[in-house]
């Protein structure tokens, strides 16, 4: 659990972070979202004391971090840098082994753990003996991730971990990333300025502007209950795509035609509208069989899906 209490940081005249407070629960992923220069990185760095706040406190698992030795604190927190920051003079294997060596792991243990991780992150075995400059940007980012994850820290801070990637690669890595069991056990604070990415990966989003927190909430709350104009406008451009991602079949269940009590192979109503549409589009099927909470199953085609979604939307607006 991470808690920030009214932390502020000034660089000269610019107030980079202004009385920011939030709480990240155990195993939750909080995404800091905002335009360039709004103070995301500064906020993140104050969690592992790369930057000391001018005011306010930070607690990790209930303990004030200013009372801890910064080096010890940092070895216990995974950190993925905005600029990757691999050591150019270390091989991939050595880069990954930096923190384990600081913690005096034995060689065998480091080896086993490194093998396991690179498999999970889809890095090849022979890349281990390469130097960072011999890797592609995407591969470097995976190494950066492996370096942060290798000691399996319970807290993970990530600063635009996919920032250096093109859109196609990014989407695929995000998917892989989301699927990693390893990450589901962790309390994560992640920074991005990419709205899609925030919605893809966040349990909750913390929207920032000019050093201030504008709104904290689930993606759905941000979409449907924006606290002010800024929040509304921030998402406006990609609203429809976001809504498809946020709204689940379960949400539009009442607006779908009645189905039948049925057993057999069916999809979960946890599926979001975007994924449902993709499934319909990519397979030859004209209908998806979805089962709701009440054991009722519905066969839905594309038109029904859109119609149900539209009715749900109207209901939200009139609420």
């Amino acid at each position: 659990m991470i808690q920030l209490k009214e932390i502020s940081k000034k660089f000269g005249d610019t107030l980079a972070v202004n009385k920011a407070s939030f709480k990240v629960e155990e195993k939750e992923t909080l995404v800091l979202l905002g335009t360039s220069g709004c103070g995301k990185t500064t906020t993140l760095k104050m969690i592992n004391r790369l930057i000391e706040p001018d005011a306010g406190q930070v607690f990790i698992n209930g303990e004030n971090i200013t009372n801890q030795d910064p080096d010890v604190l940092r070895t216990g927190i995974g950190y993925v840098m905005q600029n990757i920051g691999l050591f150019p003079h270390y091989t991939v294997a050595e880069n990954i082994a930096v923190v384990p060596k600081l913690l005096k792991w034995d060689k065998e243990k480091i080896k086993v753990r490194t093998r396991e991780l690179i498999k999970k992150l889809h890095l090849s075995e022979n890349s281990l003996s390469m130097f960072p400059h011999e890797l592609s940007g995407g591969q470097q980012q995976r190494v950066g991730l492996a370096r942060a994850l290798v000691t399996d820290p319970s807290v993970l801070l990530m600063d635009e971990p996919f920032g250096a990637l093109d859109n196609v690669t990014r989407t695929s890595i995000q998917k892989e990333f989301k699927g990693l069991e390893e990450l589901k056990r962790k309390t994560i604070v992640m920074v991005t300025h990419d709205v899609q990415e925030a919605f893809e990966l966040a349990d909750r989003i913390c929207l920032m502007d000019k050093g201030k927190i504008i709104q904290i909430g689930t993606p759905k709350e941000l979409l449907y209950q924006p606290v002010n104009d800024f929040a509304r406008k921030f998402l406006a451009g990609q609203r429809l795509a976001l809504e498809f991602k946020v709204v689940k079949i379960q949400d539009i269940w009442p607006y779908l035609p009645k189905g039948a009590l049925q057993d057999g192979k069916s999809l979960s109503a946890d599926l979001n509208v975007w994924d449902a549409m993709e499934l319909l589009r990519s397979s030859d099927r004209s209908e998806l069989l979805v089962s709701g909470t009440d054991k009722e199953s519905k066969a839905i085609n594309f038109e029904q899906l859109i119609k149900g979604f539209n009715q749900f939307q109207n209901a939200q607006v009139h609420e």
């Binding site: 790369l50 604190l73 070895t75 950190y79 840098m81 050591f87 150019p88």
Partner: peptide
Amino acid sequence: INQHVKEAARAMGMSKSQILLKVELPL
């Protein structure tokens, strides 16, 4: 030396002398 590399060393919990010996001097 690239500022980011130094920061990465710090972020991983290296002490000042470790940063000097393992990162700054070699680079």
